[in-house]
Design a protein around this nucleic acid. Structure first.
Lengths: 237, 237
DNA sequence: TGACAAAATATGTGCATACATATTACTGTT
DNA sequence: AACAGTAATATGTATGCACATATTTTGTCA
């Protein structure tokens, strides 16, 4: 029957991706080389073009190959290391390691943002916003310190939230979904005040995560999170 | 009129994703809620189930919804912030900012790895490996310092490469593709020697990138890269 | 030779259908 | 009521087809 040997080697698109990946690793398709057309690969491997497309798109998403509309597919000469991080909520990050999570509001007030914060949030001029500074604890020891600004224009309800009980981050995630998010990782020396809060010494190298979220073009919040020495973000690509 | 109005509002899967995303943002599908079945959405939106599937899978990949085989699709109550970073080769990172790239080998020798490195590479015991320490420069100023170990068992040819001319990283990328890669970001205070090399002061907060690559289960290389203050890694999720 | 229009081509997308697979829900038995 | 086996169900995957779209290549004309 016309059945294209389904029974013997029923390959899924994941298997196809693996086969092609192997060919790249083994040098059969060396860096910079052009791969066969999807249609040819499909015939060669005994499957439909759509299945090859699925596998190839996965390889392209992983940064291994490059696909262009008429140029065909090429093995990237200099594959970029593409890594995906899931930035967890502090509570879950702590609890994932089996420690007890704690939260503590350090300060809360409503003031004018500095120019730097307004700029980071894409505003032309500073605005009055809610500023919340808080500590996340793991087994009662400082885990991360966050200094957060929340737009009163976009999230007016935030003034009525009891931030001594609930982390602003968790409240926002539950009540104000965002459509855009920027992230920035860097390192900084701890100031005296930061060291005091994090239980380390001034000058210690802190891991810095800066995050901004928007709903459409309206800024929601902008946080600078500081983690004491020992903190690391890791992933497998 | 069984024709599913193709002419008027021919929606692509990206448009569908956007529509569903909007519904989530607007609260039509609140956090934790179950979404309609793919088939129902398809009928409601006037397209094929495959198209809905494509959109929904994209939303799931972005960490916005969760899909289970019979449980249907749910809006994630606590959406994780999922960010994808492309870790560039130093040369390209420098040149992307319009600066002149420079490279300088600081040291090269073949010695036994410390236990820590052997462990990081998944080896039971230390091995003799090639260690290459090098500086990447931007406009003749230190941009990043790397301390790298390369497995002689996996990459014996590396001993014949002139590392004073070519960065080990670029040689490896061109000649030794990897199948697995681990990444770890952290912060550390500069030692005297590191500060000297990077042109900063001892104690300054450095951004640390640790990376390991393997081909199958064979370790290829393991690097610790240090960037001076001012360096940051950023992305848009 | 050079510029511009037209044809060719490889990937991208959409659709309809069939079947696979993982879970949930149900049902009958003890 | 507890349990195991079975049916129901929503998503996952594969296929064949047609057409869309972005590039490259080719061809024509000045």
């Amino acid at each position: 029957m016309s059945a294209p040997d389904k029974g013997s080697d029923r390959q899924g698109w994941r298997a196809l991706r693996e086969i092609i990946h192997e060919r790249i690793l083994s040098g059969a398709y060396p860096p910079g080389a052009r791969l066969p057309r999807d249609a040819d690969l499909a015939e060669q491997l005994g499957c439909a073009r759509a299945t090859v497309q699925r596998a190839m798109r996965a390889l392209a998403d992983d940064g291994l190959i490059e696909r262009k509309r008429k140029g065909g597919s090429r093995v990237l000469a200099r594959p970029v290391t593409r890594a995906t991080f899931d930035i967890p909520v502090a509570r879950e990050e702590v609890e994932a390691t089996g420690r007890a999570y704690g939260y503590q509001l350090v300060a809360r007030d409503i003031t004018q943002t500095p120019h730097s914060v307004a700029a980071a949030m894409g505003l032309a001029a500073p605005e009055r916003m809610l500023r919340a500074q808080a500590l996340h604890l793991a087994d009662r020891r400082p885990f991360m310190y966050e200094d957060r600004w929340i737009s009163l224009a976009t999230v007016p309800e935030i003034v009525d939230v009891d931030l001594t009980r609930e982390s602003a981050n968790e409240w926002l995630l539950a009540h104000r979904p965002y459509s855009r998010c920027t992230l920035r990782f860097s390192a900084a020396n701890a100031t005296d005040a930061q060291a005091e809060l994090l239980g380390t010494r001034a000058g210690d190298a802190l891991f810095v995560i800066e995050r901004g979220t928007w709903l459409g073009s309206a800024p929601i919040t902008c946080v600078t999170a500081l983690a004491p020495p020992g903190y690391a973000l890791s992933t497998e690509a």
